[in-house]
Every structure is written in C-alpha cells, then in structure tokens.
Amino acid sequence: MLRMPAEWEKHRGTWLSYPHNPDTFFEKIDNVREKYVEMIYWVSKGEEVHINVNDEEMENDLKRRLQKYPDLDKNKIFIHKFPTNDAWCRDHGAIFVKDENNNLIALDFKFNAWGNKYPHDLDDQIPQKMAEYLKIPSIKIDMVLEGGSIDVNGEGLLLTTESCLLNPNRNPNLSKEEIEQNLKKYLGVEKILWLKDGIVGDDTDGHVDDITRFVDKDTVITIVEENKNDENYEPLKENLQRLKSFKEIKNIITLPMPEPVYYKGDRLPASYANFYISNYAVIVPIFNCQQDKIALQTLQSIFKDRKVIGIEANDIVVGLGTFHCLTQQIPA
C-alpha cells in the first residue's frame, strides 16, 4: 500500500530545477534567478535543497548568487548536473510516496509538457535520475501526470481538476474511472474530489495548485475573485460551490485573487494558492498589490508553526507558474 504524504508533513528535502529557458522567462531571467535563490535560502533553513543544473556555467551562476546569503548553510545545498528543458520541477520531477514500511519510493509518471506544448525530452528523464541519486526504487507508470495537477491531504483525499486530468491531450486512452484507479493505487487515496476549471492564463489546462490547496486533513484554502467583470469570477465561483458540496471538506478558507498581472498584453496565472509548504517556511508569491497583505496574514494564521515568507513573483509568473510549480518535496 502506497501513500503520498501531505506537503505539510516532515520533509527530508526539496528538489528544484534551475531556471534557464529564454522562451519561458525572456528578459526577466536575471531577476527570476534572484527571487529563486531567495526561495532556496528560506527553504534551506529547514531541509536539504537539491537543484538540477544543465552545466558548469549554470552551477557557477547559482553558487555566485547563493553567496549573497552569508548565513546560508551550504551543507544543505546539493547541486546536480541533471539537464532539464525548463524549471518546473513540480511537474517533471518524481512524485514521492511511502510504502507500508515507511520506505521512500519515486513515482515516475509520464511527462508530456502539459499536452505536448513544449520540448520535454530532458525533463521526462528527471524522475529516474532523482531516484538513482537518492538510491530508492522507482515505479514507471504508463500515465501522464504532473505534480501541480493534484493536491492531497495525506489521509485519503485528492483534489484535482477535470480541465487538466480529463483533457484529451494527457491520457486519451484512459477513462475517468481508470485515471481514478491509478491515483488511488499509486498515491494511496480513497476519494478524488473533482473541481472543474483553473484560472485564466494557466497553460497547464488548469492545475489545482493555482486555485485550491489542502492546509490540513479537512481544511482547504481556495482563491476567489470578487470582481464580477473579471474573467476568473465565474470559474472560481463554481469551484467554491463544488467545494461546499464535498462533505469530506469541513472548512473552506478563502483568499482573494491578486490584481491582474499581464506580460505583453497576456493575462498571467498569478495566484496566492501557488505557495510552497517547507519545514521552516511557507513561501508565498506576492504581486505588489493590496491583496498581498491579506494573503500573507491569512496564511500565517493557518501555518502558526512556520514562518510565512512573501517573495515578489511578478517576473517569475511570466513563466506561467510560481513557487509551488518550481518545487517538489522529498518526504522525510
């Protein structure tokens, strides 16, 4: 029997892939790396941080930026020359589960870059490399699944969206029932809670980690849009109604959407739900607007045992994701 621990359970470490793709971050790459290293600093206060780099040049760039934090514990930083196509380790990295004897296992689902939208030949090799480095078994699974498309409470519940997991660009040969069977078998869940759509600008076809997240076994936070003229208003309203209909969820805490963020005229998927829960800190994307304060205060009231850190993410979200999309936890 396999089980995927909840993100707030104890981590051995966090795995990342260093940002480098000019087609993802364009002219923002330098500032993206600065914010990325700030995230590494806070995460490393409580656990190991493993970072994939493509080559020595990237490794040197990373080390140079880390030097800006003189109190950083370098013994917790592990750099791996595992080349990637892009930085989104949540989706191309292994998904870690525990077996009945509490042994760590890496799940190697297929990765097709969100429906074959981008090159992914290197990314698809990462789970195997992670497992080999950690000297743990891996299970290859004949199903496309990204880590950002699911969220678990560690006690039998899984949240996901129809717009992503049932999209024909993922697993056209699998029925909804077969997808559910795989999720139950490999992630140790008993019930799949299906939401409908993600937010505007999300090129993943609607990952759940941009809209709704478990924060304890029967509590979720979910994003709402108050402006009825905003294109996210209706999808998020329907999402909230579905959450209210799930008897397994006892508490629903809402967070506002930030002010809309654009790049070259395109709406970006800016969302406070894309936070990452590490051992020491909860890393929250903020967007230089008045809603930032509400989001940070709300999350700090939930995660009383951790420091809630807001890191400005206006440039990172140009790549169409933020801190949760960049990270993958290794359970302790």
Rank of each mutant, 00 (worst) to 15 (best):
A6V: 05
E9A: 09
K10Y: 04
H11E: 03
R12K: 15
W15C: 02
K28Y: 14
K28Q: 14
D30C: 00
N31I: 11
N31E: 14
V32C: 11
Y36E: 02
V37A: 08
E38L: 12
M39Q: 10
W42H: 15
V43N: 06
K45E: 14
E47C: 05
E48D: 15
V53Q: 08
N54K: 13
E56C: 00
E57M: 04
E59C: 05
D61L: 10
R64Q: 10
R64L: 12
L66K: 01
L66T: 03
L66Y: 08
Y69F: 15
K74V: 00
K74E: 13
N75D: 15
I77R: 05
H80A: 01
K81P: 05
T84L: 06
A87P: 02
A87H: 03
H92Q: 12
A94K: 04
A94R: 02
V97A: 13
A106I: 03
A106P: 09
F111R: 06
W114G: 04
G115T: 04
Y118L: 13
P119C: 04
I126K: 11
K129Q: 14
E132I: 06
P137C: 07
I139R: 14
G147V: 05
D151S: 10
N153F: 11
G154T: 07
E155A: 10
L157N: 05
T160V: 01
E162A: 12
L165M: 12
N167R: 04
N169W: 00
R170P: 02
L174S: 07
E178K: 14
K185Y: 12
K185F: 11
E190S: 13
K191P: 07
D197H: 11
D197Y: 13
D203L: 09
V208D: 03
D210S: 01
I211M: 07
T212L: 03
R213T: 01
D216V: 00
D216G: 02
D218H: 06
D218I: 00
D218C: 00
V220A: 05
T222C: 13
I223F: 00
V224I: 15
D230R: 07
E231P: 14
Y233H: 15
E234Q: 13
Q241L: 14
K244M: 13
K247F: 07
I252Q: 12
T254N: 11
T254Q: 14
E259P: 04
P269V: 04
S278Y: 08
I283H: 10
I283D: 07
V284N: 11
I286F: 10
L296T: 06
L299N: 05
I302Y: 12
R306D: 10
R306F: 06
K307H: 13
K307V: 06
K307R: 14
K307Q: 15
V308N: 04
G319D: 10
T322Y: 03
C325H: 06
L326I: 12
L326G: 04
